[in-house]
């Protein structure tokens, strides 16, 4: 067992992953331009994972809750938006959807978090499982459960880049590029918000020690509403992007749930971890889907992210950037 605890094991694992990622190109299975296409696609979908994972990390840092309902929130946000857009212009629908997400945050704080304050993390986790079911149920009751197309004018045609460098160039989906840019901007904004603003500081204080933060006058409830709202808005953005790509449907939820292995890989408490974890998962998933999937019979994107995170956990139980926990007795 102890061999896993060695620092070099982490390095070894990262090296193995890097070799695995490069293998298709080096072994000649895929040409460089094609490989680069896959890598870019993976990184771009990874940015979205990072974004959702960031929502999770924010909630975890501020309230110690591992929010299983994040996937349900993504679906609910997208459903709300797409159904409202049938009756009103995009901007108005967006504003209302955002308000709805804030309202959900407020309700969750009132009805779930406040009564469960100071409970063990695992109890809170199971409570968010209940919240996820509830949001799923009510979302489909209010908005219906069909597949809805969400058109917000994203360009659907791919573009050919670097035509001069490679023969045929590489194909890049402009939709992915725009999505990645939006997500990256949000990730940056959130990271800044957390590091630089007063609210961010209060948030970090709460993350360190609930009671101490409360005793110097930081309103715990308000902080929770803020982080859950932020994570609701993040869910909305992710819902828009994925929804416009795949249609708004139930499976969005499962995609969004992949933020769970992302935060596990990156470490629950780390913003850089969430970002890097999202990129690793996105990249790994795309590469494995394209080069490993056909060998195994396809469909491996359903579990690849989770198994990758599991392997990481064995080597680094606290994740890439997580804080190491010391048991005190």
């Amino acid at each position: 067992m102890n061999i896993f605890q060695q620092k070099w094991m982490t390095g070894l694992l990262l090296a193995a992953l890097a070799v695995g990622a490069l293998a298709p190109m080096l072994s000649g299975v895929a040409g460089f331009p094609q490989w680069l296409e896959v890598v870019l696609g993976g990184l771009m979908s990874g940015v979205l994972y990072s974004l959702v994972a960031l929502g999770l990390v924010l909630i975890f840092k501020a309230s110690g809750v591992f929010n299983f309902a994040q996937g349900a929130m993504v679906l609910f946000a997208a459903l709300t938006l797409v159904r409202l857009m049938e009756k009103m212009p995009f901007v108005v629908a967006l504003a209302i959807a955002a308000l709805v997400m804030v309202a959900i945050a407020w309700l969750v704080e009132r009805l779930v978090l406040r009564p469960l304050v100071n409970q063990e993390g695992i109890v809170l986790f199971m409570a968010t499982l209940g919240v996820a079911y509830f949001i799923d149920g009510i979302g489909q009751i209010i908005w219906g459960s069909d597949i809805y197309t969400l058109d917000i004018g994203m360009p659907k045609e791919p573009k050919i880049l670097l035509e001069k460098t490679f023969e045929g160039g590489i194909l890049v989906s402009m939709e992915d590029v725009i999505a990645a840019v939006i997500a990256a901007a949000l990730v940056g904004a959130l990271a800044l918000f957390f590091q630089k603003t007063g609210t961010g500081r209060a948030l970090r204080a709460v993350a360190d020690d609930h009671q101490a933060a409360q005793s110097i006058g930081i309103p715990l409830g308000r902080i929770w509403v803020i982080v859950w709202s932020v994570s609701g808005l993040v869910a909305l953005v992710a819902g828009i992007i994925w929804g416009s790509k795949l249609g708004v449907q139930f499976s969005l939820q499962l995609i969004a749930l992949k933020a769970l292995p992302v935060v596990i890989l990156g470490g629950f408490t780390s913003i850089p971890g969430a970002i890097l974890g999202g990129l690793i998962i996105g990249l790994g998933e795309k590469l494995s889907e394209v080069y490993l999937g056909p060998l195994l019979g396809g469909g491996i994107e359903n579990w690849f992210a989770y198994v990758l995170a599991l392997v990481f956990l064995l080597v680094r139980p606290e994740g890439l950037f997580g804080e190491k926990h010391i048991d005190r007795v």
């Binding site: 009805l111 779930v112 209940g130 919240v131 079911y133 509830f134 149920g137 009510i138």
Partner: peptide, 9 residues
């Protein structure tokens, strides 16, 4: 779904 979720909480 809703009832289950609410009951768990």
């Amino acid at each position: 779904l809703m009832v289950f979720g609410a009951l768990i909480v």
